[in-house]
């Protein structure tokens, strides 16, 4: 098994989930609580990666961060090397690609929170931000966990976006799925099978965890 590829993949998935936990919360909060009429526009943009072929998304990200775009030039001037085909570029792409997998469970959890509880908090003098952290987040724990784990699992298995934005650099952007593809191309089926099985087991374990938490199978635990 290619342990370097596995390390890169897990690092990518963990950082993606972490960033989405931070970036996804305000977006999900806005989607849940805003009364703007054009809210559906933002919701559709967030959901776009669900339906777009990864190559299409990857292509646009590549163009957006390339040396000819303002963003690409800005990054190049700041860091000294271009963003495409680096781990950081791949991370950015992964975050965008997994955005709906985090934001949608977050938003669904926030919408479950009784408005009356939120109003009670406000009338007790607690600010909107304070209410978010003291009340809404603890009540949405399961949804936040689901979002983080789903975006982690989704990143584990991404292929098209990695190929478009990351390329295939050992130790930098070569992830497990790319590694499997390479092994098959080289007719090394035994190597591919081992890595594929490993990914299957990990993905299944992750989903087991998510569904178990949401089904509350551990309700016998003291839920203090």
């Amino acid at each position: 098994m290619n342990w370097i590829a596995i390390w890169v993949t897990f690092k990518l998935a963990a950082l993606t989930a972490l960033i989405l936990l931070i970036v996804g919360l305000p977006i999900a909060y806005w989607v849940s609580f805003s009364r703007r009429r054009w809210k559906f526009l933002v919701e559709s943009v967030v959901a776009l990666p669900l339906v777009l072929p990864p190559t299409v998304l990857g292509f646009y990200i590549l163009v957006a961060i390339g040396p000819h775009s303002p963003l690409g030039r800005f990054y190049n001037d700041l860091v000294g090397h271009p963003l495409p085909f680096t781990f950081e570029g791949l991370l950015l792409a992964s975050v965008l690609y997994s955005l709906p997998f985090a934001v949608q469970p977050f938003a669904a959890a926030f919408e479950q929170v009784d408005r009356q509880l939120i109003e009670a908090s406000w009338t007790l003098g607690v600010s909107k931000l304070g209410t978010f952290f003291k009340l809404i987040v603890p009540l949405s724990k399961a949804g936040l966990l689901t979002g983080a784990v789903l975006s982690f699992a989704h990143t584990l298995g991404e292929f098209g976006v990695v190929l478009m934005v990351g390329g295939n650099l050992e130790g930098e952007t070569r992830t497990v799925s790319i590694d499997i593809y390479d092994e098959v191309q080289a007719l090394n089926y035994a190597g591919a099978a081992k890595t594929a099985f490993f990914l299957l087991v990990v993905s299944y374990a992750v989903l087991l965890f998510v569904y178990a938490v949401n089904r509350n199978v551990w309700a016998a635990w003291p839920r203090k």
Binding site: A120, G125, L139
Partner: peptide, 19 residues
């Protein structure tokens, strides 16, 4: 805003914080 009014408010079904 409600935070600036220094009121005590109790809604019909009490809205106690379950956590």
């Amino acid at each position: 805003p409600p935070q600036g009014r220094h009121i005590g408010y109790m809604s019909q079904d009490y809205a106690l914080f379950p956590t």
